[in-house]
Amino acid sequence: DGCIQFTRHAGDVLLNFNRLRSRDILTDVTIQVDGQHFHAHKAILVACSGFFYSVFMDPKNTNLSAISLDPKVDPKGFSILLDFMYTSCLDLKDSLVLATMNTAIYLQMEHVVDTCHRFINSS
């Protein structure tokens, strides 16, 4: 017995989720950040962020379809992290790495925080 492992499968699935997001198909939540609106899939947000996990695992938030983040959250940092969730690529520009790191702290994405720290220390 054995199995055939499709090594590209995880990437192919994530790419399809990103295509669904870009076409606003089956998105089930709108995240409002400082006046900007981002449509996304709760399952991806919960899978990638400790913050969203705690929000959407709370029974009273079962039917939540819109959520406003704390005004201190930078929309550009959030946009970079949302793209990361759907592509595994973290866009790091010197001018935005601090905003990205602070947003990752807020979203409880510790591994991304560590990576931003190392990027800041190395540059």
């Binding site: 017995d1 054995g2 199995c3 055939i4 492992q5 499709f6 090594t7 590209r8 499968h9 192919d12 699935v13 790419l15 399809n16 295509r19 669904l20 870009s22 076409r23």
Partner: peptide, 21 residues
């Protein structure tokens, strides 16, 4: 899933959702 008899398939595994219809 690293079984003894795992064969690795490098090709695409599922359909690709188009950028638009």
């Amino acid at each position: 899933y690293e079984g003894v008899n795992t064969i690795k398939e490098m090709g695409r595994s599922i359909h690709e959702i188009p950028r638009q219809d």
